[in-house]
Amino acid sequence: MAYTKRMDGRAVDELRPIEVKAGVIPNADGSASFKIGKTWAIAAVYGPREMFPRFLQDPTQGILRCHYAMMPFSGSGERIRPGTSRRSQEISMVMEKALRPVVDLSAFPNAVVDIFIQLPQTDAGTRCAAISAAAVALAAAGIPMTDMISSVAVGQVDGMVVADLTYNEEAYDGPVSDIPIAMTHISKEFTLLQMDGEISRDDLLKALEIAKSATEKVYELQMKALQERFKKE
């Protein structure tokens, strides 16, 4: 049986309800909360500050460091052991690579900007929520950036190309693919493109097209959250 109607009744390119907030952690230099459906990411930015251990310092420019972590009971399955895992290490790495192209740290040699992301609750699309939250937190921290990064997952569920998959869709009994994407706003370049599962060439192109308009929606909300936080009068 083909997947003809989405389980939660959304249109194919419709995102789950999104709620973005900037400045949620007073002690951090910049912070943000990004909720998309049941997935919730909180990002805190500290720095630029002195880089330790010292051998990791780069005298030509500052370093961006991401720490992604899901909270122990955030998923719907078993308890997640806190701390780093293979998975969280990989996601931290891809997050850093997704954000690095727009962050300009040339004025901060030998320093580091740390981003900590916690996910209190998850329902697929965590790395996308984390990247979107981190981009808002970086901007709120006043880190020089040439552009914004907005991130969303697209994919295919048994022949239907959709945006923003839930865990139930990812676990659908049939050919499924989950493609997390991060995009710059001005040049519409991909800074993150991964895939789980399988997809045909035509469907992939269709999915990437959907991603373009979907990240644009995320961008609007990121912008609104930042303006709200720093609005005058």
Binding site: D29, G30, G47, P48, D104, F108, A139, A140, A141, G142, I143, P144, M145, T146, L226, F230, K232
Partner: peptide
């Protein structure tokens, strides 16, 4: 804009006054 801030125009120069940052 390269950073988050308040936009202002002085003569022909467009600038952004940072609202946060190091």
């Amino acid at each position: 804009a390269r950073a988050l801030g308040l936009f202002s125009l002085s003569g022909r120069v467009a600038k952004v006054t940072a609202l946060s940052g190091p």
